[in-house]
Amino acid sequence: MAEFSVINSLLGGVLIGLGGGLLLLFNGRIAGISGIMAGVVLPRAGEWLWRAVFLIGLVIGGFAASWSAVGVISFGLERSMPTLIVAGLLVGFGARMGSGCTSGHGMCGVARLSKRSIAATGTFFLTGIATVYIVNHLLGGSL
C-alpha cells in the first residue's frame, strides 16, 4: 500500500503541476488558489468568471478522482468544530496577509525560484510542523 500511495502522490503532483502550468500557458495567470478564491468571494472588477469556473473545475475534478476510486476525500483527524473555525480563519487571513498559499507560493512560486515564495513556503511549513508537534505530542492528537 505504501508504494501505491507514492505512485498516486507522484501522479497527483504531475497533474497539479500540469493544471497550474496550463493556466499559465493559456491564460498567463498564476494558479494561486487563495487569490482565485478571494477574487470569487470578494469580487473585484472583471475577472470573476474564470476564477469561479476554475473553482468549479477544482471541485468536479477532485470529486471525479474520488468517485473513480483512485483518490480519497476523507477527513481522518479528531478536530472539534471550533478548532476548524479558528483554523480556517487563520488559513484565510494568513493567505491574504502572506500574499499566497500552498499553491501560489508553495508550487508556482517555488518552481519560479521566487525568493519571497521560498521564504513564505519555508515559514508555513515550519509553523505547521511546530503546530503538529504541539497538537500530536503535547495535547494528545485531538483538539
Binding site: 478564491m37 477544482l58 476525500i73 483527524l77 494568513g94 500552498t102 499553491s103 515559514t123 503546530t131
Partner: peptide, 30 residues
C-alpha cells in the same frame, strides 16, 4: 509576508486543509 505565512501554517496544520483541498473536499459534502 512572513507573519501571514506563519499564521497560514498554524491554520493549515490545525485543520489539515489549505484552500485548494478544502474547496475540492466540498464535493464530498463532509
Amino acid at each position: 509576508l512572513l507573519s501571514g505565512a506563519a499564521l497560514f501554517g498554524v491554520g493549515w496544520a490545525l485543520s489539515g486543509y489549505c484552500p485548494g483541498p478544502a474547496v475540492v473536499s466540498l464535493g464530498s459534502g463532509q
